[in-house]
Design a protein around this nucleic acid. Sequence first.
DNA 1: ACGAGCGGTTACCCGCCGGTAGGCTCGTGT
DNA 2: ACACGAGCCTACCGGCGGGTAACCGCTCGT
Lengths: 215, 215
Amino acid sequence: MTTTPTPGADAPVKGARLPRTARRLQLLGAARAVFVAQGYHAAAMDEIAERAGVSKPVLYQHFPSKRELYLALVTQHTAELTASVREALASTTVNKQRVAATIQAFFAFVDADGGAFRLVFESDLTSDDEVRALVDESMQSVAGSIAGVIREDTGLPEDQAVLLGVALAGMAHTAARYWVHSDQRIPRETADQLIAQLSWRGVRGFPRTDIHPVG
Amino acid sequence: MTTTPTPGADAPVKGARLPRTARRLQLLGAARAVFVAQGYHAAAMDEIAERAGVSKPVLYQHFPSKRELYLALVTQHTAELTASVREALASTTVNKQRVAATIQAFFAFVDADGGAFRLVFESDLTSDDEVRALVDESMQSVAGSIAGVIREDTGLPEDQAVLLGVALAGMAHTAARYWVHSDQRIPRETADQLIAQLSWRGVRGFPRTDIHPVG
DNA sequence: ACGAGCGGTTACCCGCCGGTAGGCTCGTGT
DNA sequence: ACACGAGCCTACCGGCGGGTAACCGCTCGT
């Protein structure tokens, strides 16, 4: 495990001296791996350093604190997700396909190498305001994008459109996470098509009917 | 606050000696409050004890460790949720209303006093296997119940029905959490009706159509 | 060659907090 | 009245892990 350095990602050639930028990137890689595997609290700075084939002070020459290091990673990956969803929504004007593309974005995110999604979706630093803010902003952004489309298409009041956006985003999020953790028993295509159908059927009915007070 | 012993919830009458059972309950109350407010890691045993108007060793006479204390709470509240959803699904045989009742169960759970749902839905002890297991089992159970109904009604393969169950549960989960955190800007009725509609429209279309490989 | 400085290391500090040892004080049965 | 035990307290320990002080040596420009 520890002896064989995972090829492709980090290359902890123990003796090597690296220029600042390269080292920083490599440290981020090591940190990501450890945080993903252990969670924030269980992860030790020593371990991250060790994984990078380097000693602790080096880590602190690049990042002022453990928290800051973590924040850097979370920032990066939340940004990836939001960008990816934004692209998905912009990729077409056909709403049905927008839905499908968005779902796919979530599945792709969760399926990405290194399991980085855990830092966003399964962080154990939920008590930190800044981390929460980052994650919340990200989901808000995603939900907002979806809500925009919904609103434009159904005339629902802002509040309600956002709620639906959040709900759909949450569904995608949860489904994608479940799919990954279940060792991909279902092929990814099938899974995201299924969820896309569920979502699309859910939203497309909305313009016509409004809410009756108690059925 | 501390002087007036809130009747009903905790009664931190600082001087009092309590019989074991009563004390245990009170300690659980204090622990819940602190864990909810601070999260597992930020919470200190001293603080829980203090909040209960008691010293730390007393806490350890009732619970062998911090982790165990936390587990007791998580166990309790996950059980509440699963029971509540099970009831919701059994409350009627009309599927549309089953969906509505389930959504309502989630909203009620999240809206319950003390914000105990945070221990289940926003725990920062995600790295602990046993905690994860409890939460996962709970969601599995919920998803399974939903999947059962879906399957019976659509003839979808088990795997896919479960995926849909998970997705719907996740949606309810996320929507309810969002609703609570947004200070209930939307009235709860409206919110859960909206989500119920979204869900119902999503699932009810399923028997007829099957999945086309790529649109 | 030689010194400047960058990239790195070893070895340490110390605060926080989970957990514990041992003693005190009431209420109660005899 | 006395002892016994249940219930609680004060005071402490110890280690884990984030963060740092101080020193080394390779490389490269001159």
